[in-house]
Design a protein around this nucleic acid. Structure first.
Lengths: 246, 246
DNA sequence: TGAGCCACTTGATGCTCATCAACTTCGCTT
DNA sequence: AAGCGAAGTTGATGAGCATCAAGTGGCTCA
């Protein structure tokens, strides 16, 4: 458990988080890159209610989804029926890029479900490829996005593996802060969990019981207080101390 | 520990391996896609001896490396000085794609070192971007590669986490088979480990001591026999039984 | 040839977390 | 409001693996 700076409090916006987190710093949420607008111009808006699926494992890949608002969970179903949460895709991210990978019909390996009301721009594979053929700039921008996500996932995998469950939960909370965090009237950081504890557990590779017990220890250590799906973090630096920085 | 088909023996080439492994099936090693040849045309060949670094963490990203032959280890150095092996890049793969991500000077997050004699085509960032501007097909091909790697890493991360160390080692061996496996005179599958046990350990998120003990159990169960960096696998199906398929 | 170093092995011990089971609470339906 | 199922909590137990420590063997270098 490495000790960190522990200096001044850092209330809301973009705190320096070392390591992997750097990758997330740049144009993630915010508005689209401009370049990809061209791509989205050939798409249609789709809306989903909480629990709706954008696509399901085994279905044919038909196109890309640009998430405009809301949160999408990307899961994989194991042969034994349990769902593993692969990632949470937030506004500004792209889901379904596998559509572009394979030349011909290929099946989705994952399932994407809306965790709340979601607005997304769907761009069919054909339409996407058309644009990409004639507009190099667009695809370069898309490449950057996907390369970023690739790099992130690679590092995350390695880093996650030799971190304690406690540290992984801390990491999860911090990464949720970007899209699901705010500051309440007392100046405390608040985070609204977009998923159930079961999904939270599967996202960090542990079990719901363990999540419960970790919550217990977090509260005992005055690091984070959980009530339902709301989390209150009295001092962000204390939470940052937990992530055992890369 | 799920029981599998256990039917006929499968000697050398492309066995069906379920789950993640599917992703690797397609154009991985083999020859380049043709499209990327254009990209490589603007590059220069570089040669590295065992132990040489292609680039190091902290250095500026200057371009892409297409690995023509040999094996490259991509590592990340933690703040406490220990190296974590992120991935092994084999012939046909691309290393350093981060060069394209950031617009301006950006530092490598990882270190890439040659595990044996390596031949690579280096394409400077500027040169790459030039080609990409005018040849959409090229970038599309590059995009496919990176998207594939991204998807793989994402799934791997999730899958790896709730697998036993034993299963992860089995997985590692199977994935090494692609580029480091052959069949000996007795018809047994042989694998030449490209890394030390310490690196092997860090690659699967465990410790060298654990690797030792796992080897012990593998030998006790007649699954794989280790002598130095050579591994003999009497029956591939027995090894496949260990991976606790996705 | 021996000293030293590094990779690897082996053993003993304890911590973290999964598992199984029972119980509580919440949200939803009728 | 009662009843139900899913979500979450709590407790007891044990397996898996990290850790610390002490070896062994092979390698290089003086």
């Amino acid at each position: 458990m490495g000790s960190r700076s522990h200096g001044q409090r850092t209330p809301l916006p973009q705190t320096r988080v070392p390591g992997v987190q750097q990758l997330r710093a740049a144009p993630k949420g915010a508005k689209s890159t401009g370049q990809t607008d061209l791509l989205k111009a050939g798409g249609v808006e789709r809306r989903y209610r909480q629990g709706d699926q954008l696509f399901a494992q085994g279905e044919e890949c038909t196109g890309l989804y640009f998430i405009e608002s809301g949160t999408v969970a990307v899961q994989i179903r194991t042969t034994r029926g349990s769902d593993v949460l692969i990632r949470l895709a937030e506004a500004g991210e792209v889901v379904g890029s596998r559509a572009l990978i394979e030349g011909h019909e290929s099946a989705h390996l994952k399932t994407a479900v809306a965790l709340n009301d979601v607005r997304a721009t769907f761009v069919s594979k054909a339409s996407a490829l058309d644009v990409l053929e004639i507009r190099p700039g667009v695809i370069l921008s898309l490449l950057r996005r996907i390369a970023r996500e690739a790099s992130e996932a690679e590092v995350m995998r390695a880093v996650s593996m030799d971190l304690s469950a406690r540290a992984r939960l801390a990491r999860m909370l911090i990464s949720l802060r970007n899209h699901h965090g705010w500051v309440n009237e007392d100046g405390d950081l608040m985070i609204k969990l977009p998923v159930s504890r079961k999904d939270l557990a599967s996202a960090i590779g542990t079990r719901p019981e363990t999540i419960s017990r970790l919550i217990e220890t977090f509260e005992a250590d005055n690091i984070a207080y959980f009530t339902g799906r709301e989390v209150r973090v009295p001092d962000l630096d204390d939470l940052l101390d937990e992530i055992e920085v890369l």
